[in-house]
């Protein structure tokens, strides 16, 4: 497996490392960004599997947006995200650890770890497989409980959902009647046709008028 070096992180999150491994892993993770990324991904996967957190926007997606914004207008970013900037610097570890569930669970784990005499030995080799399992179970979960996941999926496109309701809301007359779509389209067609007819009537009026004028002049 290519991500064998990430096993230790997976093990850590699965509560299956001993004290020295824990320290080593944390040390390693704080030094390499790829490791911290993996840390955040794995913990997220774990959370989702345990139904403790609904799947949110991928952190890299958010980071991309922020990077793009930072290029456009530096000032605003700095002002209103003084808090965030620390988050981005230290990357997702801080971010994830700020999640209440995770923190309480982690502290609990670390405590219990000190008390438990031995790590479970069988765990080590199961880890690589668990990563693959996560994907499969994750997919199953998604399709089974659609309603639960539909909302957060929509949130992954914040820009679009933010704009759409504005343009949809401005349909004027259409909101008023409790009419079926068929009736609605007839209403629209009739109103449009009425306006269209009005454009043309001046021609005829004019003709009538000029005729009248002539009549007036002649006698």
């Amino acid at each position: 497996m290519t991500n064998k070096h990430l096993e230790s992180i997976s093990a850590l999150l699965d509560d299956e490392v001993n004290q020295s491994e824990l320290e080593a892993t944390l040390q390693q993770a704080s030094e390499q960004s790829s490791q911290t990324d993996a840390f955040s991904r794995y913990s997220l996967i774990g959370d989702v599997l345990r139904n403790e957190q609904v799947l949110e926007i991928e952190s890299s997606f958010a980071a991309n947006i922020q990077a793009a914004i930072a290029n456009v207008e530096q000032e605003v970013v700095e002002q209103s995200t003084s808090e965030q900037s620390t988050v981005t610097e230290k990357s997702s570890v801080v971010d994830i650890s700020s999640h209440a569930n995770w923190r309480s669970r982690m502290t609990q784990k670390v405590k219990s770890f000190g008390q438990s005499s031995s790590g479970r030995s069988s765990a080590q080799f199961a880890i690589a497989a668990s990563v693959a399992l996560v994907a499969i179970i994750g997919v199953n979960n998604m399709s089974q409980s659609n309603s639960e996941y539909s909302a957060p999926v929509a949130q992954t496109t914040p820009l679009v959902t933010g704009v759409a309701p504005v343009s949809l809301g401005s349909t004027g007359v259409q909101n008023k009647p409790s009419a079926s779509q068929l009736t609605q389209s007839r209403i629209n067609a009739l109103i449009a046709d009425h306006q269209q007819q009005l454009k043309v009537i001046d021609d005829k009026k004019e003709l009538a008028e000029t005729n009248e004028d002539k009549k007036v002049i002649e006698p």
């Binding site: 926007i57 914004i69 970013v77 995200t81 971010d95 949130q155 933010g162």
Partner: peptide
């Protein structure tokens, strides 16, 4: 985090 991005 994502909310703040939105806001931004």
């Amino acid at each position: 985090y994502s909310l703040d991005i939105n806001h931004l």
